[in-house]
Amino acid sequence: MLVELIQMCKDGRSTNRMHQESGKMAEETPTSIADVATRARVSVGTVSNALNHPERVSTATLRRVRAAIDELGWTPSGRARKAPGRLETMGVVLVDASSSRAAVLEGIQERIRRTDVEALTAFTDGDRERLLGALNAFERLGMHSIILESGEGTDQLAESLTSRGTAVVIAGASSSSRLSAAAVDDDAACRLVVEHLLTGGRRRIVLAHDGREPVRSAGRAAAARAAASDSGFDPDAVLIEQVLPGVGAAGGRAGSEFLLDRRVQFDALVFPDDSAAIGAWQNLVEHDRAVPGEVAVVGCGDSPESAALGITTVRLPLHAVGYHCAEMLLTQRRDPRTARLKQVLPVDLVIRNSSR
């Protein structure tokens, strides 16, 4: 497991504090990573590994480094100081650092900005071994609060963590009564898109999936099929499912290229994120396939880039998902007996030129 990004979420208080020394006030020299290493009786490199590659460091060493950081009030960003012993670390485990996940992180940051909490974020790229490694490293670091992006098997992992005293909130859908979760309404998103395309005369709709998200993909497919049936169409006749061969814009480009190479007949493409929709749109234009004349393109996320290109998309309140997840987690840490909540946040379809 590689912890790829550390995002320290603090309230921006001054990095310096004044103390009495020799009968006068003097500004304290900021604590450095070398001070942490000295306090923990390890090298600077070991401190760096404890923060960025905890799987390479023993549990005992991780605890010493964590204790030194707490005692000295040091944060890796070098921008903020905390009162010794007051800061709690919240673990966040997401699939990647895409714009959609960045929005979730921004929501988390907004909620904890004025608290004595920092967030340590790990990205798994949808790999289960990396997910398990991230959770193991967080436990070894002594974390007792984790926001975990939903995926295949995450409910079971989260329940196992809660049984060991860790508070866990799922970012995404969860069917467990023992867990709190905040998610966008993916079912409604797919229904809105399919109904819109069918109403517009589209009859061969490709529903593209991110291969790293099997649970979400299954839900999207079921919702799309239900929407087609409710609109009076045979889902097998109007829907074509495709697992993208990559992620982001490259995945969308490759997915559309695959369909063109095999002469698949389609008149609409629906993607799990805006980046993939942008990549496909660019590839179609290069192949002289008119958008939206021959093909309608729909994304998910409502990014500034998709808006600039005029791509129809589903607006997802991902910032709110992060905010609510952090709120639930903070509440659980204050009172573990708090009732578990499930929040499903509404979405809306933003129709632009690519599907008109």
Rank of each mutant, 00 (worst) to 15 (best):
M143N: 00
S14M: 09
G293W: 09
P272H: 14
A122P: 06
L132A: 11
A226L: 12
V264G: 09
A250E: 15
G78A: 11
R289Q: 12
L269V: 09
A119W: 03
Q109E: 15
Q282M: 11
P30W: 08
R81Y: 02
V65C: 04
R86H: 10
S100C: 06
E55T: 07
S176Y: 05
G133W: 07
L179Q: 01
G219C: 04
L161Q: 03
A97E: 15
V206R: 09
L132S: 11
S48H: 11
Q7G: 12
V321M: 09
P54A: 06
G201M: 09
S175Y: 04
R164C: 05
R352K: 10
L269D: 12
V264A: 15
S175C: 04
A276V: 02
V42M: 12
I278F: 00
A276P: 03
S275R: 14
L316N: 11
V42P: 10
R178M: 07
I146F: 04
F138Y: 14
D236P: 01
L148R: 01
L62N: 00
D234L: 10
V47T: 08
A137V: 01
S231Y: 06
R113C: 09
V238F: 09
A103G: 04
Q7Y: 07
A277I: 00
A237W: 07
R263P: 02
R216M: 10
L62K: 04
E110D: 15
R352L: 13
G251S: 08
L132F: 08
D261Q: 15
D267V: 10
D230W: 03
T124C: 11
F123G: 02
E129T: 13
T338E: 15
L239R: 01
V92N: 10
G201H: 08
A83C: 06
A60N: 13
L179A: 02
R39P: 01
D348P: 00
G200W: 03
L192G: 01
A221F: 07
L87I: 00
